[in-house]
């Protein structure tokens, strides 16, 4: 593994995480104040509001930066990356799919 030199990359990740979190909070506050377009907050896609999809994508971006940079996984060998990521990437969406599908009330 080539060690990154200096600390600039740490602060780069910090600003990304800070910016994304601030953006999420801004969206959340706009949602409470009802300043967001109606179709964006209440319109749904695959059973979830569009806004929720945006929140989830932003969260996964943050998670990726924490795991790949802060936890250094992005700089490990391919085998280790796959060993860590595959169980999570397969099992968690599977569990979510089963539970959320069952959770929707069929009237």
């Amino acid at each position: 593994m080539a060690e990154q030199s200096g600390t600039w990359w740490i602060w780069r990740v910090f600003w990304i995480l800070l910016f994304v979190t601030a953006f999420e909070v801004l969206l959340g506050i706009l949602k409470v104040n009802e300043s967001l377009p109606e179709s964006f907050v209440h319109g749904t896609f695959l059973g979830l509001a569009w806004l929720t999809h945006v929140f989830i994508i932003l969260t996964i971006i943050k998670a990726a930066y924490i795991v790949m940079e802060f936890m250094h996984l992005g700089h490990e060998v391919k085998g280790l990356k796959l060993t860590i990521l595959l169980p999570c990437v397969i099992l968690i969406p599977y569990l979510l799919f089963i539970l959320l599908t069952e959770g929707v009330m069929m009237v």
């Binding site: 968690i92 979510l96 539970l99 959320l100 069952e102 959770g103 929707v104 009330m105």
Partner: peptide, 9 residues
């Protein structure tokens, strides 16, 4: 996921 399940319900 359990939270999501109960919330959806």
């Amino acid at each position: 996921a359990a939270y999501g399940f109960m919330r959806f319900r």
